[in-house]
């Protein structure tokens, strides 16, 4: 037979398919004090957990959108190695939840376009919406955008209520397929650990796989 000499140059090193995750976080005045401090700690633990998982490490790309009296990008999408760890977030102003959700969806769409343009495969994007209150802006358009995407299986959404004053009815409107979660106290750490494991599951999935969320893993720190 002809010599079969196949080296690294003859093969392709395709990029790992990505899981874009947008953390859409309430930084209104009511989050001041322990809630915002615990949230920052939880986000950084999330980054560490993603970093430690071989699969999630290569696939997860995360951004943070904050909303208070308006919405803003804390940092854009980046892989875990390039993600800046956040030292603090400032809690101030109202709860422009719709503006936050719309901005998060815009960034996800833009990221998907970037992937498509460069031939990088990607999984269904995730939107994690966390609030301790009720929106102070009109959420109708944002709700419709999210629901349309969820119902066409183009988005996975996790609405999370923080504390007893979170408006769970509003959060439920963003989640047509499953009820929102209410965190038990300020157990951000447990939530973000669970989230990182869920991201890892998705990043290991292959065509035809149905990724089921580990709902039993919610026990003790959240309720559906």
């Amino acid at each position: 037979m002809a010599t079969l000499n196949i080296g690294a140059d003859d093969l392709v090193d395709n990029p790992t398919p990505r899981v874009p995750v947008s953390l859409c976080l309430d930084t209104s005045t009511s989050m001041a004090g322990s809630p915002i401090a615990e949230l920052v700690r939880g986000v950084n633990l999330f980054y560490e957990a993603i970093d430690e998982d071989d699969d999630a490490h290569d696939s997860a790309e995360i951004n943070i959108v904050e909303f208070n009296s308006s919405a803003g990008l804390v940092h854009d999408f980046a892989s875990i190695e390039r993600l800046p760890r956040i030292s603090s977030l400032t809690a101030d102003g109202l709860t422009a939840m719709a503006a936050g959700v719309n901005l998060a969806l815009d960034t996800l769409e833009k990221r998907k376009a970037t992937y498509s343009g460069s031939g990088v495969l990607y999984y269904q994007p995730w939107l994690v919406l966390m609030t301790d209150g009720a929106p102070t802006d009109n959420i109708e358009i944002a709700v419709k955008r999210v629901v349309d995407l969820v119902e066409t299986k183009k988005l996975t959404v996790f609405p999370i209520g923080i504390g007893s004053r979170a408006d769970m009815n509003t959060l439920a409107r963003f989640s047509p397929n499953r009820p929102p979660l209410r965190l038990d106290g300020l157990k951000f750490k447990e939530f973000f650990e669970w989230l990182s494991k869920s991201v890892a599951r998705v990043s290991r999935s292959t065509p035809g796989d149905t990724v089921k969320l580990d709902l039993e893993g919610l026990e003790g720190w959240a309720e559906l």
């Binding site: 002809a2 010599t3 079969l4 003859d10 392709v12 395709n14 031939g119 292959t206």
Partner: peptide, 29 residues
């Protein structure tokens, strides 16, 4: 798709050079 991770460039839509070598090797066997 598992093999395609090494033998198909998803970014350019092209086959890896190894494919030509593999086909030639089988043809010359």
């Amino acid at each position: 798709d598992g093999t395609a991770e090494s033998l198909f460039d998803a970014r350019t839509g092209r086959l890896a050079a190894a494919c030509a070598k593999l086909i030639a090797a089988v043809g010359a066997a």
